[in-house]
């Protein structure tokens, strides 16, 4: 496609966006990085306790709420926010992919499959704060669906309010987040499936492949671009998770479900240590960067193919 030459007048198309983004996004990002090194770039913020340098990063590395060696050793919670985030990804990501692809394929063959798909999507529509409350509700000893199902299968003795015990709080939230976030992967995979050429699957049928072979040898490999997107977005979502935890457990009990984003907020709001807060935010962003780069590259590659 022909591109129009850029002229000063045409640059004005970019100006309003540029101003807003520079002031409210780019400047804050840079200021946060600077702040994390104890240097005070923002009028009104006073940091006097520590000298400029990596001190905050050393301090955070030894903070039990960030990483708790004792908990890791004894396999008990809390293990520290960063470990919790990693556990979150380790459980959530595979489940999201499996649920996504299985439901997307399965629901194609179900009457009213699109209705069920929109049921599953509801988790993506509601505020995540409500999502967190719904998780809390679902794991409640007396009211929750989870315990109701346990009782139905004769496992009533297991029933308890899962979110208030250190050993189950994090897992409850993770399972709940699978429930909330599956709408994303199911929708992505369904869209991907409907754009696959029908003939290719039919060719496999004629070639004698059974359902399993078609799924693993034809459908899943052809959906690889979708999988890459889902993987990247899910990891990002898991790392940034905040509302759900805030609404359901506030990181409790005793930090057993603390996550990075919430730790950042704790430093800011409860302890008023802005520099430490900025440090946690920066660490969070640094962890995210490889995923973002991977994702940006896949998007740009996709652009070129179009």
């Amino acid at each position: 496609m022909t591109q129009l030459k850029i002229t000063p007048k045409r640059i004005s198309f970019f100006i309003p966006a540029l101003i807003l983004i520079l002031v409210f996004v780019v400047y804050p990002i840079i200021a946060t990085i600077i702040l994390s090194f104890n240097i005070n770039p923002i009028p009104g913020v006073n940091i006097v306790e520590r000298s400029p340098g990596f001190e905050n990063y050393i301090k955070i590395a030894t903070d039990k709420r960030f990483i708790n060696p004792k908990g890791i050793e004894t396999h008990s919670f809390p293990m520290g926010a960063i470990i919790h985030n990693v556990i979150w990804i380790a459980i959530h990501l595979p489940l999201t992919l499996i649920v996504g692809i299985l439901f997307a394929v399965y629901l194609q063959y179900v009457r009213g499959g699109s209705i069920i798909r929109s049921f599953i999507f509801l988790g993506m529509v509601i505020p995540m704060i409500v999502g967190g409350l719904l998780i809390l509700f679902s794991f409640d000893k007396d009211l929750g669906v989870v315990n109701l199902l346990l009782k139905l299968f004769g496992l009533g003795f297991l029933a308890r309010t899962w979110t208030i015990y250190p050993d189950t709080a994090l897992f409850s939230l993770i399972l709940g987040s699978v429930w909330l976030w599956s709408g994303f992967s199911v929708t992505m995979y369904s869209a991907g499936l409907s754009s696959l050429p029908r003939e290719v699957i039919e060719a496999a049928i004629v070639d004698g492949a059974d359902f399993k072979t078609i799924l693993f040898k034809v459908i899943i490999p052809m959906l690889k671009p979708v999988t890459l997107t889902v993987v990247a977005m899910t990891i990002l979502w898991d790392l940034k998770i905040f509302d759900v935890v805030y609404a359901a457990t506030q990181g409790g009990p005793g930090g057993a479900s603390m996550v990075l984003a919430l730790l950042m907020y704790e430093y800011f709001a409860r302890l008023g240590d802005y520099a430490m807060s900025a440090t946690v935010a920066t660490v969070l962003t640094i962890i995210i960067i490889p995923v973002v780069i991977f994702w940006i590259r896949s998007v740009i590659r996709g652009e070129r193919e179009v």
Partner: peptide, 17 residues
């Protein structure tokens, strides 16, 4: 990149600004 940055990364300076 800006689409993927966590809100946490911007909020402190925004607060003081």
């Amino acid at each position: 990149f800006l689409m993927a940055v966590p809100q946490q990364m911007t909020i402190i300076p925004i607060f003081f600004l």
